[in-house]
């Protein structure tokens, strides 16, 4: 098992948002999480990226326990940074750094990370390597001609593609998407979904929170339907979308105009 999430609980001041979430996935799979707003999808994703720390539960990756609430709930900034390296995150609102060019958005974090440990005489070689890797990534997401553009000069779809490339630049084990097309005009969602499909074909391991049901059905190996902080139903897309056991998912899919 590549990723094994066990019994995650997360409570905020007045609400229990995650009430015992467990699931697992294999390397190279795409897992989508669907469900109404408030069901806990985003919180789950944020727990995996350690933007929130789960109150209880464990996360195993590649057979190693990378998070155990008993042990890590109050862990240090340094420990969190190491854990975060396993996961990449693409936000709904892109969150690009406006003061840096597209390319610099990609290279900043890898550079800070690698230069921390590198001896002085190797620094320029490392910078050059990171720069080239960044250019390659931007070419992969179809932005060869936008390397030096600032975020404000890019369309929403282009910004989100830069954000995807930025997350890939740190070579995460798993790439997470939090409603990557929800902030986009309908005519721009296609270009972002295409990039995600390409990643799927290259066997990037992905967890995608989305409201694009048609896309979820096509791209995912495994679908998780969340409701009120628990996993109400999960399975391959054919089952979850066309032959679900839970009545909740039918009414949800109707609301999402899936049928």
């Amino acid at each position: 098992m590549f990723l094994h999430v066990k019994n995650i609980y997360k409570k905020f001041a007045h609400a229990e948002v995650l009430k015992g979430i467990s699931f697992s996935m294999e390397q190279g799979q795409a897992l989508t999480i669907i469900g109404s707003s408030g069901s806990g999808k985003t919180t789950l994703l944020r727990c995996l990226n350690f933007l929130e720390t789960p109150d209880s539960g464990q996360i195993d990756l590649k057979g190693k326990c990378i998070y155990d609430a008993e042990r890590d709930r109050n862990c240090s900034d340094v420990q969190l940074r190491n854990k975060r390296l396993h996961f990449g995150m693409v936000f709904q609102q892109f969150n690009l750094f406006p003061q840096y060019t597209a390319l610099r958005n990609l290279t900043l974090a890898p550079e800070l990370l690698q230069l921390e440990r590198a001896p002085r005489n190797e620094q320029s070689a490392i910078k050059k390597k990171i720069d080239e890797a960044g250019r390659d990534l931007l070419i992969r997401v179809g932005l060869a001609d936008k390397m030096d553009a600032y975020p404000y000069q890019l369309s929403g779809g282009q910004q989100q593609r830069v954000a995807i490339a930025r997350a890939l630049a740190l070579n995460p084990d798993i790439l997470c998407f939090d409603e990557p097309t929800s902030a986009l005009d309908p005519e721009l969602t296609g270009e972002v979904l295409k990039v995600i499909k390409d990643l799927k074909n290259e066997h990037t391991t992905m967890i995608i929170v989305t409201h694009e049901m048609g896309f979820a059905e096509k791209v995912s190996d495994h679908v998780v339907f969340m409701a009120h902080g628990i996993i109400e139903e999960e399975g391959p897309p054919e089952k979850v979308f066309h032959n679900p056991e839970s009545p909740l998912i039918r009414s949800f899919l109707q609301k999402e105009d899936f049928y």
Binding site: L51, N82, R84, Q93, L96, A109
Partner: peptide, 14 residues
């Protein structure tokens, strides 16, 4: 915006 901090944090910045 909080998103700017979060983007930095998920990229493992200090």
């Amino acid at each position: 915006s909080v998103g700017q901090y979060e983007a930095g944090h998920v990229l493992s910045m200090k």
